[in-house]
Simulated scan of single mutants.
Amino acid sequence: MADPTAQSLLADLARLAGVLGPAVRPVDTDRLLATITRSARQLFGARACSIALLTEDDSELVYTTASGEGEDDVTGMRLPSGTGIAGWVVMSGQPVAISDLESDARFARDVAEGTGYVPRAMLAVPVNDGDRVLGVMTLLDRDDGRPGAEQDMALLAVFADQTALTLRTERALGDLGRTLLATLARAAGDGTDLAAAADRAGDEVPPVSADLLELAGLFADLQRMGEAEHRLALRVVREVTAYAARRRPRAGR
């Protein structure tokens, strides 16, 4: 019979798995987002660029990343999700280009003043993950007189797509980490092996997809195998990744 104290600790681990799982994330996520905003600002000759993401309940916009004017004050700022032009973009799911912010009733001047920089023009596009809007990417006071500026809306959307891809990768690894932790807690608690525990982890971690649960079980099977099997699995994953990259539609095609 399992030690009651150990069982209690394992039960705590299972409950905490949902919180701890997202810690298994790409270590460079924040750096990648910072690079995206910095690169966009430089490419467009803009005074500032930022990324704001919706909270889980869609009630707030959180400015997670900023580059340029007012970046220290903007980073970490939280606003009700319908606030200002950024709020309008996430609520409508539509991009917007405004050359005279002062004449636009949606412009939240008080928020801008709080950052120490009041822009005159803005370009903003939603950050979409499929049918769901994750947030908004905003560009302030770009150089609209440079060659090719008429394509800026489409180009900024490419940066927003890269942002969505980065966030999707982070979420997938967080879900996988949460699944693995819950699986480990179950296996240690009832004496089953990891693969069997992964098959039953769906009841413990409902937000995780069936595909991730199967993947966790396969990882458990794989770790019991030898180096040759590990190398074979790695080669298969690499080939699948390369195949998917070749099938991805290219821009302009």
Score class of each variant (00 low, 15 high):
E239G: 13
T83D: 10
L53H: 02
P249D: 09
T179I: 12
G217A: 04
Q94N: 10
R231T: 09
T65V: 05
R106I: 05
D73Y: 11
C49M: 13
A245K: 13
V136H: 07
D190F: 11
L184F: 10
P22C: 03
A197E: 13
P249G: 07
A185L: 06
E204Q: 14
D203F: 08
G135A: 02
A23Y: 08
T169F: 00
M1D: 15
S50D: 06
I51D: 01
T166R: 11
S67Y: 07
L155R: 15
G145I: 01
A34K: 12
Q151I: 06
I51W: 03
D3Y: 11
A233S: 13
V90Y: 08
G84F: 12
Q94P: 00
L134R: 06
A220S: 12
L123C: 06
R168E: 00
V89S: 07
R78N: 03
P126E: 03
L54S: 03
T163S: 00
R15P: 11
A48W: 13
S99N: 06
D144G: 05
V236G: 04
A105F: 09
L134A: 05
M1S: 14
A187V: 07
A251I: 01
M91N: 11
G148R: 07
D199V: 08
T166V: 14
R15D: 12
L213A: 08
P80H: 06
A233K: 01
D152N: 07
R31P: 00
